[in-house]
């Protein structure tokens, strides 16, 4: 069984307002998808509908900007149909739909998102009904797993009604009931998704996409090295305030623990990628530093040099103690780098 993905990232919105990081987010997610130690998807099965694929040259009119909703629909259909347009069920193991751009939520009671296509204008707010496409594929039972990721706003917007994709209903209730889903939205109802300079190179990225990728690379998995969707969700929620800010609403991530999805598999010897933790205890000179894990047992020791030491730890909660003193502090190791000061 094969995995497929459509990755949409739109920076160029001549009819609305530009974004800076959506294209980058999409490229980085697509790159992770095709890594053998990442998503493991055959690069031939990852279709990118990103601004850079179509522009430059810049469109003469807003209505000529790409990708469009029709281009997405055609790409979506091509994944599970043959040359004659006939559906070939089951089409694959997993379908991943990733969107980064301007978006909104519909005014129905359903929790759903749509992404504005590049040619959207205030007069003609064309969009891709992201959740409805995912739900259509689930109902059709074409894939065993459905991963939907939307890094876009969910606030009040140009339009309130999500247009139904023009697709004939295809229902396989028995298969649909077995489909495992992971739906992740950067912003909860009524809130904005944000982008800002992030990462070592300080390039503008979507906060949610950045943390999603960090979680996929860094989240501590189970003992067997499996990083499940629930691990990814927990990692993002734990890292959220420090990366996004303590007053930015966290993302909405829906996954059923009883129907969890495998998101990444780490080699057993390297199942928990490390966070580099720089620990400083001013005035502690060359005392010995002990790091205790959540179970209270020492998991690292290091000699301080001028009151500073660097240790490598899996993401989690720890206690750092300067041996022979009463100085200690609790800390969270998360992300690539964490800095800790022992008072």
């Amino acid at each position: 069984m094969t995995d497929y993905a459509i990755v949409v990232g739109i920076d160029l919105y001549p009819g609305i307002s530009p974004l800076e990081g959506a294209q980058r987010d999409a490229d980085e997610f697509a790159a992770w998808l095709t890594l053998p130690e990442g998503g493991g998807v055959d690069p031939a099965n990852v279709v990118r509908l990103t601004t850079a694929r179509f522009h430059p040259p810049l469109p003469a009119r807003a209505s000529q900007a790409q990708p469009t909703a029709d281009q997405f629909r055609d790409t979506f259909i091509e994944i599970f149909t043959d040359d004659n347009g006939r559906v070939r069920p089951p089409a694959g193991r997993r379908l991943t739909l990733y969107f980064s751009g301007h978006g909104f939520m519909g005014n129905t009671t359903a929790i759903e998102r749509a992404i504005y296509s590049a040619n959207a204008t205030t007069l003609a707010p064309d969009h891709i009904a992201a959740t409805r496409y995912a739900n259509w594929a689930v109902r059709a039972g074409l894939f065993d797993e459905m991963v939907l990721i939307c890094d876009a706003c969910a606030d009040l917007s140009l339009t309130t009604s999500i247009a139904e994709p023009i697709l004939m209903p295809l229902v396989n209730a028995a298969r649909a009931a077995r489909v495992r889903t992971f739906y992740a939205y950067a912003s909860p109802a009524g809130a904005k998704a944000r982008e800002k300079p992030l990462g070592a190179d300080k390039q503008v990225r979507g906060i949610f996409s950045y943390l999603l990728l960090e979680a996929l690379r860094q989240a501590p998995g189970a003992d067997d090295g499996c990083v499940m969707a629930t691990h990814v969700r927990d990692y993002i929620h734990n890292a959220w305030p420090e990366t996004a800010g303590a007053d930015i609403l966290p993302p909405t991530i829906a996954v059923e623990p009883a129907r969890d999805l495998l998101m990444a598999r780490r080699p057993p010897t390297d199942k928990q990628p490390a966070t580099t933790v720089t620990i400083t205890a001013v005035g502690a000179g060359s005392a010995e530093l002990v790091v205790l894990g959540g179970n209270g047992k020492a998991c690292r020791t290091a000699a301080l040099t001028d009151g500073q030491a660097e240790v490598s730890l899996p993401a989690g909660l720890y206690k750092a103690v300067v041996q022979g003193t009463a100085r200690s502090t609790l800390f969270q190791a998360i992300g690539e780098v964490t800095r800790v000061d022992i008072p």
Binding site: D234, L292, N295, L317, K319, Q332
Partner: peptide
């Protein structure tokens, strides 16, 4: 309440009184 492996172990509103294994929590 989140345990040292970053998994949620309890939640509540206003106040919470739970029994947990000794260790570090967020």
């Amino acid at each position: 309440v989140i345990d040292s492996s970053l998994s949620r172990v309890a939640s509540g509103m206003g106040s919470l009184d739970v029994k947990v294994r000794p260790g570090i929590y967020k």
